[in-house]
Design a protein around this nucleic acid. Structure first.
Length: 271
DNA sequence: GGGGTTCCTGACTTTCTGTT
DNA sequence: AACAGAAAGTCAGGAACCCC
């Protein structure tokens, strides 16, 4: 199971040369990618967070990610689709449900009538959602869920998008509103993000673990909730890279079993 | 300042509709 | 028929507000 997972995974390039991306580096890469995805000098910016990686490493990794997404677009990404269908993640309760014979297969509402407690979207998940939105466009929630917000089901992504656009449309209608994660309309991180240091270029100490004012509900023992927030958050933190790795035919179990000891906490909206 | 109430937000479910 | 997305609704939690 989860215990004993390696702290990093090794990505062996097709050429045979092994480029070692430690888990922390992967996190840095992902966070930096989310922040600088739209920047023209994104490679330099991302590389500035990764002192042990060359510009070429970052460029190569990014191209591989794009290639993967392109293959997905063309419908020939075996790895990703296989992973999501043949090996249902425990975080994909809703998707699993939707694959049951009948649409009427109701949710796992406990017999005692308690509703499942929703797992709040992290800022990172939302940014990945925005990235996916820019990549696949509105409506392709399945692709966004599979390739960007891997910790969420298409249904969850669609629901999130629904509320997001409602929020977007109502922005001009009311001036005094509570801060919301849906106020974030760009996948890039704010300049004052506590985990970013664009001026010094020094990598953040814990890019995926920014300060968080309140402990998330998942910080304690894992609830019965089928989304298993800890894994979900980890999956969110791994989103882009996981997509890349799976698209390249890597086996999650063989080559990149991720640690479940990710000490991260979800982003919080800094308003 | 403290407590209670109201309102808003977000996660999720259900149902309907369109597509394959 | 099965699947996927859209729309509408439910519910819980929390922030904002009001009154004392």
């Amino acid at each position: 199971m989860a215990a004993g997972f390696s702290l990093c995974w090794d990505y062996v390039q097709p050429s045979g040369m092994a480029t070692f991306w430690r888990l922390e580096e992967n996190k840095v890469f992902e966070v930096a990618l989310a922040k600088h995805y739209l920047d023209e000098d994104r490679y330099e910016r991302i590389a500035s967070y990764l002192p042990n990686k060359s510009l070429g490493d970052v460029q190569k990794r990014f191209r591989e990610l794009e290639d993967d997404l392109r293959r997905i677009d063309e419908g020939c990404s075996e790895g990703a689709s296989e992973q999501s269908s043949a090996e249902p993640s425990p975080t994909r309760s809703d998707e699993n449900m939707s694959q049951q014979p009948s649409k009427k297969a109701k949710t796992d509402v406990p017999a005692n009538g308690d509703r499942r407690k929703g797992v709040p979207w992290t800022e990172e998940e939302h940014r990945l959602f925005l990235l996916g939105l820019s990549k696949f466009g509105k409506g392709d929630w399945r692709s966004i869920a599979r390739n960007f917000v891997v910790s969420r089901t298409p249904t969850q992504v669609a629901s999130h998008a629904q509320k997001y656009f409602i929020r977007l449309n109502s922005l001009n209608k009311k001036d005094k509103r509570r801060a919301s994660i849906h106020d974030i309309t760009s996948p890039t991180l704010p300049a004052h993000a506590p985990n970013a240091n664009p001026t010094t270029g020094s990598p953040p100490a814990a890019p995926a673990s920014p300060p968080q004012p309140a402990a998330p509900p998942c910080s304690g023992p894992a609830p019965v909730h089928s989304s298993l927030p800890t894994q979900a958050q980890q999956a969110a933190a791994m989103g882009v890279f996981t997509s890349l790795a799976l698209g390249m035919g890597m086996s999650m179990q063989q080559n990149m079993t991720p640690t479940l000891a990710m000490p991260t906490a979800p982003f919080m909206v800094s308003c």
